[in-house]
């Protein structure tokens, strides 16, 4: 397993494993502050727990009732500088206009590649 060709990989792996273990050791031994009672997991897990228990495909399509509430919530964020607006328009437009073409290309490649 530890042959000569992979020596650089194992070097990196050992260094980083040692780093991870020592950091974790130090962190678990550090005096702990007060534990958080909310937001204590990753965003994906949180969203799953909060919004995804007992949900069906129908709810994925039919979620528009939140819109009014959220509009109220976000109407006060108005202070951005123009460059952020422009970049945001540009990236949004690029992603959403190219997305159909990416899916289309993937469909072509899927059809061509399947045996």
């Amino acid at each position: 397993m530890l042959n000569k060709k992979k020596i650089n990989f194992w070097r990196l792996a050992f260094i980083f494993t040692a780093l991870v273990i020592s950091v974790l050791f130090l962190l678990w031994n550090a005096p702990a502050g007060p534990k958080a009672s909310m937001m204590d997991t990753s965003m994906g897990n949180m969203m799953k727990g909060k919004h995804l228990s007992g949900i069906t495909i129908y709810d994925l399509i039919n979620g528009m009732e939140y819109q009014e509430q959220m509009r109220e919530m976000h109407s006060h964020h108005q202070g951005q500088s123009p460059i952020i607006f422009q970049l945001s328009y540009l990236t949004t437009a690029a992603i959403f206009l190219l997305l159909p073409f990416i899916i289309g290309g993937a469909v072509i490649l899927g059809i061509v590649w399947i045996k």
Partner: peptide, 20 residues
């Protein structure tokens, strides 16, 4: 990107898949 303002079910599902 599009669901962040509405449709919490959509964003929950997408975030979960994206992360894992």
């Amino acid at each position: 990107w599009i669901c962040i303002e509405f449709n919490m079910a959509g964003i929950g599902f997408a975030l979960f898949v994206h992360e894992y």
